[in-house]
Each structure stands twice: as C-alpha cells, then as structure tokens.
Computed example of a mutant assay.
Amino acid sequence: MKAIELLFTSDVGLMSLTVLAITLGMGGFYLRYFLKHVKDDTAAQARR
C-alpha cells in the first residue's frame, strides 16, 4: 500500500506514471500506424 501511495503522491512517482502513459500511448499509436500501412501495402500488392 505504501508503494501505491508513493507512486501517486511523490514527484518521482507522478513522473513515472507520466512516462508510462506516454510510452503506452506511443506504442498504441505505432501499432495502429504499422498495421494500417501493412494492410494498405498488402492490398496494393494484391491489385498488381
């Protein structure tokens, strides 16, 4: 319980949460981006 309290109340804990949120957001963005482009390239290749 002390670790969760420290995570949400200290400066270092809040910065850690911010970095985790940004990292997960970037991962989600790149996953969607790459999957969309793979799908588009596969469709373009099939049309040839």
Results as ranks from 00 to 15, higher is better:
1 M>P: 01
1 M>C: 08
2 K>E: 05
2 K>C: 01
3 A>H: 04
3 A>F: 08
4 I>D: 00
4 I>G: 02
4 I>A: 14
4 I>M: 14
5 E>K: 15
5 E>I: 14
6 L>P: 00
6 L>G: 02
6 L>I: 06
7 L>C: 06
7 L>V: 03
7 L>Y: 02
7 L>T: 12
8 F>P: 00
8 F>N: 05
9 T>R: 03
9 T>Y: 07
9 T>S: 10
10 S>F: 00
11 D>A: 07
11 D>C: 01
11 D>F: 06
11 D>E: 14
12 V>K: 11
12 V>P: 01
13 G>I: 01
13 G>R: 04
14 L>R: 15
14 L>E: 12
14 L>K: 15
14 L>H: 12
14 L>T: 02
14 L>A: 02
14 L>S: 05
15 M>W: 09
15 M>L: 12
15 M>T: 04
15 M>N: 12
16 S>V: 15
16 S>D: 08
17 L>N: 06
18 T>V: 06
18 T>S: 08
18 T>K: 07
19 V>E: 00
19 V>Q: 04
19 V>N: 13
20 L>R: 06
21 A>F: 14
21 A>I: 09
22 I>W: 02
22 I>V: 13
22 I>S: 08
22 I>D: 10
23 T>P: 04
23 T>E: 00
24 L>H: 06
24 L>D: 01
24 L>S: 08
24 L>K: 05
25 G>Y: 10
25 G>D: 07
25 G>E: 03
27 G>V: 11
28 G>V: 05
28 G>W: 08
28 G>N: 05
29 F>S: 12
29 F>C: 08
30 Y>S: 01
30 Y>F: 15
31 L>M: 08
31 L>Y: 15
32 R>A: 15
32 R>D: 03
32 R>F: 10
32 R>K: 11
33 Y>T: 09
33 Y>R: 14
33 Y>K: 14
33 Y>H: 15
33 Y>S: 09
33 Y>A: 01
33 Y>G: 00
33 Y>V: 05
35 L>V: 01
35 L>I: 05
35 L>T: 10
36 K>Q: 09
36 K>I: 03
37 H>N: 13
37 H>V: 04
37 H>M: 06
37 H>A: 01
38 V>Y: 03
38 V>K: 13
38 V>T: 08
38 V>P: 01
38 V>E: 12
39 K>V: 09
39 K>A: 15
39 K>G: 06
39 K>C: 00
39 K>T: 11
40 D>R: 13
40 D>A: 15
40 D>K: 13
40 D>V: 09
40 D>I: 12
41 D>L: 06
41 D>E: 07
41 D>W: 02
41 D>V: 02
42 T>E: 11
42 T>Y: 09
42 T>W: 10
42 T>P: 00
43 A>F: 10
43 A>G: 02
44 A>Y: 08
44 A>D: 13
44 A>T: 09
45 Q>V: 03
45 Q>D: 04
46 A>V: 11
46 A>S: 14
47 R>N: 05
47 R>C: 00
47 R>K: 14
47 R>T: 09
47 R>Q: 14
48 R>L: 06
48 R>Y: 09
